[in-house]
Design a protein around this nucleic acid. Structure first.
Lengths: 340, 340
DNA sequence: ATGAAAGCGCTAACAG
DNA sequence: CTGTTAGCGCTTTCAT
């Protein structure tokens, strides 16, 4: 039912070559012929097939994005920023949610390869080294966001989670906290390991002894996991006066958990989250957090991508490793501890 | 650099037909040959080109999704649900954010047509009737979510926003409120008009006079627009004791605005939002709202899609019009008004 | 100023 | 059990 270049050519009484040239303005066609062709296009509802175009001319103008979950507000914002930038340059985005499942993730990469995307952007799990290396060998540009994978040399835009967390903990220590809990990710990822290192460094710098009992792992990535985690933590260590969570949603859960346990925040307990999600402005008290600079990340990522996509020899250049330093956003969930 | 079926055929010493049949298991190939082909595939890193496959066999296994903004948590959740269902059936999703811009929206539809998607899912603005009619004529299945467009007969999965809002207002009236503000959308859309009708009906049923002064429009679709809107509204009408907002984020802004004006919620003022976003569980007080049943919507949408995509004559069947009734979620932002 | 035709990667009908 | 080949929609030389 959808019409093709042939239909247009026939109706306009010209060759397919002429139609092609009218559509792409790629060589001169007389005004009269152009008009006839355009009329035919209009009346047939002809839309050129970009996929076939990519067959000869290489590019498909499609980019794949692989991440765990787009309903995570931060990732949603990031995906949206990237999509907008790409779209305004004529590219489309195929988004694949992996739901934190390594098999789905691998399948996602495979599908994108079969869809012949021009490039892949990923926030992958750390088990995907082999697949990513394979993709790199095939010659598809890849940009990793906020992840570092051992033995994999690809373009990377990452957030300095070490510094981000360090600053957050510094803030707590300066306020007078000495017993600072830490809610960690269920399964280690490069970014969460960086965070933990930042936590340790801040303690060390201020000669606060590190105590592994102050660390718990949240069961999941949602609000309720945060509630459970903070309760476990505080029951184990009643002397804690503050807690850092690796992710805002978990921190908001912790806020709720503490509320349910009868603590007031920030009077009795301080909380810091991580990612600077818009939602943290809405909680009560508003959450102190560390920004995940979505806009800058999207921009850097697309800049790298465009460079790789435009050049003849996209792999001549050395791999980029852009590091973005996040900022501490101090709000109302942190204050000095009460004198006991 | 990416290898093709020819490369594989050459390396395995067979014809391209054989490779194709091995890949698609579409006719018997001897064990030995199969092994040779698979070895070649492996060592070349061959990924079949799905786009070209679609050239002959019709389908591209790609579906387009057009909506205003995927960073809206509700839409993010919806996009994610849809993506997951489609992916598990072998389809990919191209997501286009329109940023509430009609021109971008039109461009998005055009691009999807050129990408030869098998179907389009959209939550469009109400100005897109012509374009959608054109798409329908071309023969691409379309499913509209939560929007009704005049003079356009296509499959639709919609939420009964009339009933949803009616119930919300009923709830307020039963609590004893008589002076109920209404924060409306900046620009009318079918769903917001339905909401307003539900508001009016509830008032009418309880013989509460309708007063157009109780309605304001929020400037934008964000938190801060909610703050401004509620302030305008309350300054104009100090006798109000409750307010309904067409969208949770606006309601959360209203919550903040009232707080800044010195009102306590729900003691001095009741608020109801709309969409049942996860974020509404986190505010303080937790927001009473009307659920937008994302899971059911995604399921229905994909069911319709699969039916259209599987049949030989996908347009024989009559257009579906599925209506989903949302539920009122009563939480802590509503209570009886104080006796003046 | 325009057309004819080869070829991109793949599938499927036909041939053997 | 496997190969040959036409053709899908389009671009791009080459020709006129």
């Amino acid at each position: 039912m959808a019409s093709t270049i042939k239909d247009v050519a026939k109706l306009a009484g010209v060759s397919t070559a002429t139609v092609s040239h009218v559509v792409n303005k790629t060589r001169f066609v007389s005004e009269e012929t152009t008009a006839r062709v355009n009329d035919a296009i209009e009346s047939l509802g002809y839309y050129p097939n970009m996929l076939v175009r990519g067959l000869r001319g290489q590019k498909t103008f499609t980019v794949g994005l692989v991440l765990s979950s787009i309903s995570n507000e931060t990732f949603g914002l990031l995906a949206e920023s990237i999509q907008k930038i790409l779209f305004s340059s004529g590219y489309n985005l195929i988004i694949c949610n992996t739901s934190y499942d390594t098999d789905i993730e691998k399948e996602a990469f495979n599908t994108l390869l079969m869809k012949k995307v021009d490039a892949i952007i990923a926030i992958p799990s750390n088990r995907q080294g082999d697949k990513l290396n394979e993709i790199k060998k095939i010659g598809i540009p890849i940009v990793l966001i906020d992840r570092v994978i051992p033995n994999l040399l690809v373009d990377t835009v990452r957030v300095d989670n070490f510094k981000g967390t360090q600053e957050a903990i510094n803030h707590l220590i300066k306020l007078g906290h000495r017993s600072i809990g830490y809610i960690d990710r269920k399964i280690d990822q490069s970014h969460s390991l960086e965070q933990k290192l930042g936590y340790k460094k801040a303690l060390e710098d201020h000669e606060v002894p590190f105590d592994s009992n102050n660390i718990v792992r949240a069961d999941g990535y949602d609000y309720f996991s945060g509630i459970t985690a903070v309760k476990t933590l505080v029951q184990k260590n009643p002397q804690l006066t503050a807690v850092f969570a690796y992710y805002d949603i978990i921190a908001l859960g912790a806020l709720r958990g503490l509320f349910e346990m009868g603590y007031r925040v920030p009077e009795d307990f301080s909380i810091i989250g991580y990612d600077g999600m818009p939602i943290t402005r809405v909680s009560s008290p508003r959450l102190t957090t560390v920004s995940f600079p979505v806009g800058r990340i999207a921009k850097c990522t697309c800049d790298i991508l465009f460079k790789r996509l435009d050049r003849e020899k996209p792999h001549q250049e050395k791999e980029k490793d852009i590091v973005i330093v996040p900022e501490l956003i101090v709000r109302d969930s942190t204050s000095s501890p009460r004198i006991m």
